[in-house]
Each structure stands twice: as structure tokens, then as C-alpha cells.
């Protein structure tokens, strides 16, 4: 009797999650191109997969391919550009980034990204910090930094 309830419970949960995740698979990711991923000039790659970008901004991938440290810069959780970046480039929501960071910060298994308070500060920090990665509106990008193109598989 008890075993049957367990099996029923697990089946219901499984079906429920299958059902709600199905529509998402079909939806195509949007790109409007108004926000770009930017890196320090020393970073010698031009393209990155979305998965790797998620791992970097999720603070789980910590080194570039040459072994040098990745330094992640972000705007505050409630900044409109942060929201746009999370949705367009990572295809996740800002609250998910926050909970992923908090799980690392408060269990000691990772560290938080560096917080900047404005887009101008973002541009300066990324331009002057070796291994830095951040994001900016296309109009605010100049020669002091370079754009990293993100593939969506």
C-alpha cells in the first residue's frame, strides 16, 4: 500500500515536470542584439557557447582555456541591463543567478561575482582587469574592450 503511494507520487511528479518543461523546449531563444558580452583585450577567444557562458556567470567555470582566472563583473540584481543580459544571453532569469550564487557563497563552495554600480564602471573595470568578463549595451562599447560572440546551439 505504502509502496504504491510512493510510486504514484513519483510518477505524478515526473509527468507534471515533463508536461511543463515541454513547451519550453519548443520556444526559440530571442536575440535583439542590444546587449553584448564583453571581455578584456587579453582574452584571446572570440566565440563561446551559451553553456560555457552560463557556467562562467554561474561562477562554476573559473579559468579561461589558457588557465588564467576568469573575473566576472555584474550590475546589481535589479538593474534593467542585468535582467536583459540574463534573459537574452544566458536564457535564464536574474533570480536564478542570485540563488545559484547564494548557494555557492553560503556553502563555501564558490565565490560571488564582482559587483559594479554602473555601465561606465563596468566598461572601465572590464577594460582594466586581465581576464575580465561583463556585459554592456552595444552603444557603450569602445576599443578598450572586445565583444565575445555567444553561440546558441
Amino acid at each position: 500500500m505504502a509502496v504504491r503511494i510512493t510510486v504514484h507520487y513519483l510518477c505524478c511528479i515526473f509527468l507534471l515536470f515533463l508536461l511543463i518543461s515541454a513547451p519550453f523546449v519548443a520556444s526559440a531563444p530571442q536575440t535583439s542584439g542590444s546587449v553584448e558580452v564583453v571581455v578584456h583585450l587579453s582574452v584571446n577567444i572570440r566565440h563561446l557557447s551559451r553553456n560555457s557562458l552560463r557556467a562562467i556567470f554561474g561562477m562554476r567555470l573559473r579559468a579561461w582555456q589558457d588557465g588564467s582566472p576568469i573575473r566576472v563583473f555584474v550590475l546589481p540584481d535589479d538593474a534593467p541591463l542585468h535582467n536583459l543580459f540574463a534573459k537574452e544571453k544566458l536564457n535564464i532569469f536574474p533570480y536564478q543567478l542570485r540563488s545559484a550564487w547564494d548557494r555557492l557563497i553560503f556553502s563555501g563552495t564558490g565565490q560571488a561575482p564582482f559587483l559594479v554600480s554602473s555601465e561606465e564602471e563596468m566598461r572601465v573595470r572590464v577594460a582594466t582587469t586581465p581576464g575580465a568578463i561583463g556585459y554592456l549595451k552595444r552603444v557603450n562599447i569602445d576599443d578598450s574592450i572586445q565583444i565575445l560572440h555567444v553561440h546558441v546551439e
Binding site: R62, A63, S68, P69, I70, I105, F106, G108, G110, Q111
Partner: peptide
């Protein structure tokens, strides 16, 4: 109340305490 510190001297080494 909690306070934690973490130190990552290398990309693959971290010391953490709370």
C-alpha cells in the same frame, strides 16, 4: 547571524569558512 570568508589563491583552490 552568519559571517563567512573565502579565499581563492588559485583558480582551482579555495579556502572557505563560516
Amino acid at each position: 547571524i552568519g559571517v563567512n570568508a573565502s579565499y581563492r589563491p588559485l583558480t582551482n583552490l579555495q579556502f572557505s569558512g563560516q
